[in-house]
Simulated assay, not measured.
Amino acid sequence: MRHLLSAIVLLLVVPLATAAELRIDPGRSRADFSVRLLWVSMVSGSFEKIHGDVTVARAAGTATVTAQIDLDSIRMESARLRRWVLAPEFFDVEHHPVVHFVSLPLPLATLTQGGDVQGSLTIRGVTRPVSFRMAPNDCTPGAMAGCVLRLEGSIDRTDFEMRGHRGALSDRVNLGLAIVLAAA
């Protein structure tokens, strides 16, 4: 019986010891986007409320990123443009207030050396597979708190049912994220 209790305790403690959690610092992280307008200029904005976690599974040698962006935190060059992108034809913030991203497990080396980050992105209740490119950084794998993860990618807005003004706006939306990690 004592061996059974020891085995149960070991099974409960080992996963806790091999998984570490970092949080996304919402005050220092941001996401930017840009989309071409009339093939001449760019419309851009940034989201200033990003929160989520990076779960590190050291035994498996992987990490998983989960992030949410509060759409109401968008900043744009004009109030008119801000109202336009929050309206039902684009983000429809009233019914879909957040963008959600969950990565597939990625090798720990990607957090410092950079590389592709695959996952699922949900916008307007529509989930699609996406790929972002993470830039290398100077962080050490054992001390990720304070580290800035920079990611870039693009999506087709029509994949997420954002079809408004297709004659004036490009379907391709460029995304950039600067995620600052903090200890959980």
Rank of each mutant, 00 (worst) to 15 (best):
T64P: 02
K49P: 04
L104P: 00
I74S: 13
N137V: 08
G52H: 05
S46C: 04
K49S: 12
D70W: 02
G27E: 13
F33T: 06
S41T: 15
V98P: 00
P107E: 15
A168Y: 06
E21A: 07
Q113A: 15
R80Y: 09
T122W: 02
T122A: 02
L169E: 05
H51R: 15
V117G: 02
V43H: 03
H100V: 09
T158Y: 03
W84I: 11
A20W: 03
H95G: 08
S34A: 14
L106W: 04
S44Q: 13
N137P: 06
I74Q: 13
I155R: 09
G45D: 15
L12Q: 13
G45L: 09
V130Y: 05
D116H: 00
H165D: 12
M42S: 12
S154N: 13
G153H: 07
R36L: 04
L106C: 10
R2I: 07
S78V: 14
A79V: 12
R28G: 06
A19D: 02
V130C: 03
V35F: 00
D72C: 00
L111P: 14
L149N: 10
F132I: 07
G45N: 15
G176L: 08
L175K: 10
L177A: 11
D138C: 03
A184M: 04
E48A: 00
E48G: 07
E94R: 00
D53F: 01
T122K: 13
V173A: 03
V173D: 00
A145Q: 11
G153V: 07
V13Q: 10
D156M: 05
D159G: 08
V93N: 12
G115F: 09
R157N: 03
D70P: 03
F47K: 13
G114V: 10
L5M: 10
S6T: 13
T112R: 08
E21M: 07
T122E: 06
G52D: 01
F101C: 08
P26S: 12
R28T: 09
G45H: 13
V35G: 01
F47Y: 14
L37S: 07
A184S: 11
L37W: 06
R172S: 07
R128F: 00
R172P: 00
D32C: 11
P136D: 14
I179G: 01
R83T: 15
S46Q: 14
L86C: 08
S120L: 05
R166A: 04
E152H: 10
G114M: 10
P141D: 09
C139Q: 11
L38S: 09
T55D: 08
A7C: 07
A7N: 12
V85W: 01
V40T: 14
K49G: 03
H3D: 11
M162C: 07
L106M: 15
S103M: 11
D171G: 10
A57N: 15
L104T: 14
P129C: 08
G61A: 12
L151M: 13
V65Y: 02
D32N: 15
I24E: 01
V40G: 02
A182K: 06
L86F: 04
R58V: 03
S78C: 12
R28M: 05
D92F: 04
V148E: 09
V43G: 01
P88S: 11
